[in-house]
Amino acid sequence: MELAISVIVGFMILGALYAIHARDILSAVIAGGIVGYSLVICFLLLKAPDLAIVQIVVETITLIIMVAVVLDSSRVEAYGKFDSRAWVTAGTAVLILLIFFWFLRLASAHLAPFGENTMRMADAYVNGAVDRTGSVNLVTGVIFDFRGYDTLGEATVLVTAVLGVLTILRLRGKKV
């Protein structure tokens, strides 16, 4: 299974690289879709069907909206000049990436092996969720009962996002 996930993650990296370098924005959007749909297969292989359902529907809807936006605007990317400021930005990015990987390497020595669940909290959730919440689906039991505050926060984030979109895309009442 780890081999299959590695192959799919390789596809995702290829799709992301192509999306960065594509001249045509439409093909870049489609290549971005490769990343999302490969993630669906990864979720299914890792036995997370709840996430897979959400991911496949959200990916499809965002892809439709992105393709519609690209077809309505321009398909040609606007290239900027690569001057000294761009060098500073790129250098900072590479530096932060190196520091991040250094700390990741330090931290990965203390992590549990891949897929092995050794957390005390998780054990209590897996063994006691059905008795305490009465919900057969463990995920729903956790996100609406044990972690109800998180779900309330997620729903509030969605409402705030809609408020932001409505505020930005409002032409009526605005003096143009």
Partner: peptide
């Protein structure tokens, strides 16, 4: 609360 899915997944399908 019985099968995979829930409010978030079903809501996105309805919107779809």
């Amino acid at each position: 609360h019985l099968t995979p899915g829930g409010g978030f997944a079903g809501g996105v399908i309805l919107a779809g």
